[in-house]
Design a protein around this nucleic acid. Structure first.
Length: 426
DNA sequence: TCTGGGGTCCTAGGACCC
DNA sequence: TCTGGGGTCCTAGGACCC
């Protein structure tokens, strides 16, 4: 049977989240900043129209922000994560065949639906999500995921299509692909786009019609899949269940540069705590710890990155052990006299809890059970009372300069009792 | 002064096995 | 000209995504 995919994508997601709880922001220019208030990572349409590109450093755009009175927000991931869940739950009402692709996107399988009702179904989904969550979405429909991504772009761009673009009943497919620069395709980034253009392939239609062996050789199988999907042959499947992560990373740039080992240790310990939580959430253990340390700035030469790897005696998800191993790594790479910008931890060599190989020489049995029980108690308390209800002394207790700058964060409208908006009766 | 924080997949090459 | 013919595992690096 001919497959049908829909890509549902939230419009300017972070900005839309802020607008749900602050309707005065409608039709006004709004941006949301990355962690540490570093770059602009979400823009309202009004800001896009001003020509401010995605990823612009905040400090470079202060003039424009003042001139056009752009409203600025620090990122509020608790809010965006919660709103994302609401959107996804609404989508699940329409089909269980759903892949949550990112915080603001999902692929749906609409295979088997009457082709003539696809557009109408998408319109219903769109208005239901808007009514249930306040978030506007656009929907692209096509026979493959690559084409659905593209259809979604047209849905956002074309006036008059009311947020839905159905490529399966579009008669001028080739003309549309010819008008699409090759770099706009899902899976073709800057490097590949530059290469393809140097080889005379400028648009999506030319890539579609290129020679398979040539594509395979120069763009690997990933490129070949893209070409096949452009021809309408589906080869990137819908992945309903998220597969367990093979590596878990937590890292953050510091609010202000850090010079002392003790402060680095505090920051690192709190990132390890967070990474270990993610590890336990997917019922895994890690057997390799990697610590990164970044010094220098982006001006002039690239920043220097130092790293150290440690293979653990036995896989574990026990936070105190992981903190200790990470600290050993940090001690190996730390050098006095540098201004460090960032520290990070990467947990890998991940195995599922059930298949873990025990170390022959570790004391097996009771203390492992106790460690596991302690961690699940800790996790459930922190889930209930907030992520820092219980934390390790190693993570530090005073406010320190390494913590993130978030000068313009909105409230936790949906995740903290005291921040829930009040509706006043007249 | 000031530039995010996560992830995935693929390939090539080397060490080592029988 | 031509040097056996398979494998596996690991690492490093490069590309991509949001």
């Amino acid at each position: 049977m001919k497959q049908v995919f829909a890509l549902v994508d939230c419009n300017n997601f972070y900005v839309s989240c802020e607008r749900v709880f602050n309707p005065q922001l409608e039709k006004k220019p709004v941006v949301v900043l990355s962690n540490n208030d570093g770059c602009i990572i979400a823009r309202s349409n009004e800001v896009k129209a001003l020509g401010i590109p995605m990823g612009t450093p905040f400090f470079k755009s202060t003039d424009l922000i003042k001139k056009y009175q752009i409203k600025v927000f620090s990122s509020n991931y608790a809010l965006y994560g919660d709103m994302s869940q609401r959107v996804m739950n609404t989508l699940y009402h329409y089909t269980p065949l759903l892949e949550v692709y990112s915080i603001d996107e999902a692929f749906l399988s609409l295979t088997g639906l009457n082709p003539s009702s696809l557009r109408e179904t998408a319109q219903v989904i769109r208005s239901t999500v808007k009514r249930a969550t306040g978030i506007p979405v656009s929907i692209g429909i096509a026979s493959t995921k690559v084409l659905a991504k593209l259809a979604n772009k047209y849905a956002k761009r074309e006036e008059g299509c009311r947020g839905v673009f159905n490529l399966t009943d579009y008669p001028h497919g080739d003309a549309l692909l010819t008008s699409t620069p090759v770099g706009e395709l899902w899976g073709i980034g800057r490097q590949y786009a530059r290469y393809l253009i140097s080889e005379g392939i400028f648009n999506a239609c030319q890539l579609k019609d290129a020679d398979d062996r040539w594509i395979r050789k120069n763009l690997t199988v990933t490129g070949l899949r893209i070409a096949w999907e452009l021809r309408g042959r589906s080869c990137i499947a819908l992945e309903e269940a998220p597969s367990p992560k093979k590596g878990i990373c937590t890292s953050r740039a510091f609010g202000t540069p850090v010079r002392s080992l003790s402060e680095l240790m505090e920051a690192l310990s709190s990132y390890v705590t967070r990474a270990a939580e993610k590890l336990r959430q997917q019922n895994s253990l890690a057997s390799i710890v990697v610590v990164y340390l970044t010094s220098g700035t982006y001006r002039g030469t690239a920043p220097a990155i130092h790293e150290a790897t440690l293979r653990l005696p036995a896989p574990t998800a026990y936070t105190p052990h992981l903190i200790n191993f990470a600290k050993q790594c940090l001690e190996r790479i730390f050098q006095d006299g540098y201004r460090y910008r960032k520290v990070g931890v990467f947990l890998t060599g991940i195995v599922s809890h059930s298949q873990a190989q025990l170390n022959l020489f570790s004391e097996m049995g009771s203390h492992l059970t106790r460690e596991k029980a302690l961690m699940s108690t800790l996790d459930s308390i922190n889930r209930k009372w907030g992520s820092s209800a219980l934390s390790y002394a190693a993570c530090g207790v005073e406010e320190k300069g390494w913590r993130m700058r978030q000068a313009m964060k909105s409230q936790s409208y949906t995740t903290r009792w005291s921040d829930i908006p009040l509706v006043k009766a007249l």
